[in-house]
Structures are given as structure tokens and as C-alpha cells.
Computed example of a mutant assay.
Amino acid sequence: MRFLLIPLSALAISVPAVAQQQGQPELGERTQSPEALFREMNTETPAEEMARLVTAAEAYPLGTIENPVRVGGPEGERAYLARVRCADGSPIRVGTRGEAGMGGFGSITNAYAVSCGGTTRRIVFDMYHEEHAESRPPAGFTLAQ
């Protein structure tokens, strides 16, 4: 029995080594040059990337998932909603807040149900833009100063 155990142990130890030799690079072995890796990376600066994303988002109405209202945190969402008015200038009714999914700027967004008269729409926010102060209203609304 001991004579059978020794060859089986040796086989069990050698199987991972054989599997690694079959076309797989060794641990730490370079699979491509640093130059090739850099070519695959995004070469835009963060400002250039944001400018490109803003330009793409502007093809959609403000307050949609493709062009969310950019604000700084939940406080920014509330401050913006406090300024939104119905088209006739009357105050809006703010409903529930929920997650809206991945927005046009690549981050998770939130949406609020907003009512004017008998119509309810949703306004989508991206709260990861501390540096941005939105001055435009979503379509069909106005902004108080």
C-alpha cells in the first residue's frame, strides 16, 4: 500500500506544473510590453474625458439617465430640487427617491419622482460632481434663482 501512495503523491504534486507548462505564462512572466499596455490605456486627462462625456450627454434632455443633472452629493440634489418649479412657476411636489442605474457620466444615479399638477415625471441626478453647479432646468420646468 505504501508503494502505491508514493507514486500517487508524486503525480498529484506534478499535475499543476504540467498544466502550467501547456501554453500558460509563468507567474511574473511578461505577457506584453509596457508600451503595448500604455497604448491600451485611456490617454485623456480627467478634464478631457469629462468634456467628451458632457458633449455626448448634451444630445439628450437634461434630467434623463443619459444626461443626469450633475450635483454635489445628496445635499446638491435637495438644493437643486428646491429651485425647480413647474412651467407655470408653481412649486413642484417631490416624491420618492430611487436608484436609476448607470448614468451618462459612468456613475450610479438617483431619480426623484416630481409632480406638477397631475403629471409626474422623474428627474435623474448624478451626485458625484461637487465642482459643478447646474444652472439649467430640465425640459418642461423652470428654475428659481
Rank of each mutant, 00 (worst) to 15 (best):
T119L: 12
A79I: 04
F125R: 00
L8D: 00
F105W: 10
S9C: 09
G28F: 10
I65T: 01
T109P: 06
N42K: 09
L5Q: 08
R78D: 14
T31L: 07
V94A: 13
R30H: 03
A56M: 14
L5N: 01
G117L: 13
V69A: 08
P68R: 09
I6W: 12
P34E: 05
E66Q: 15
N67P: 12
Q32R: 15
Y128K: 06
G89R: 10
P25E: 08
N42D: 15
R97P: 07
E58S: 10
P16F: 03
T142I: 12
A36S: 13
V124L: 02
E99H: 10
E29C: 02
V114G: 00
Q145M: 07
R2A: 00
S135M: 09
A139N: 06
T120E: 09
G95N: 06
R93K: 09
R122D: 06
L4S: 06
G76D: 04
S115I: 00
T96E: 10
M1S: 05
G98I: 01
A113T: 04
T119V: 15
G76P: 11
A139Q: 15
L8F: 15
R122C: 00
R83L: 09
R70P: 06
A87K: 14
L11D: 00
L4I: 04
L27S: 12
R70T: 06
Q21R: 12
T109E: 00
A12D: 05
L8M: 07
S14V: 15
Q145C: 03
A82E: 13
D88A: 13
S90D: 11
G106Q: 07
V71K: 00
E44C: 05
Q21W: 14
G23N: 08
T43W: 12
E44R: 15
T64L: 03
V84S: 07
V15N: 06
T55P: 02
A144S: 14
A100F: 11
A12C: 14
L5R: 11
N42L: 12
I92D: 05
Q32H: 13
E66T: 01
Q145V: 10
E29F: 07
A79D: 10
N110D: 15
A113D: 15
I6Y: 06
P91D: 08
R85N: 01
G73P: 08
A47H: 03
Y112E: 01
A111L: 10
L4F: 05
L81I: 04
F125T: 02
H132R: 08
L8A: 13
E49K: 13
E99V: 08
G28V: 02
A113R: 14
A139R: 15
A47Q: 12
G28D: 06
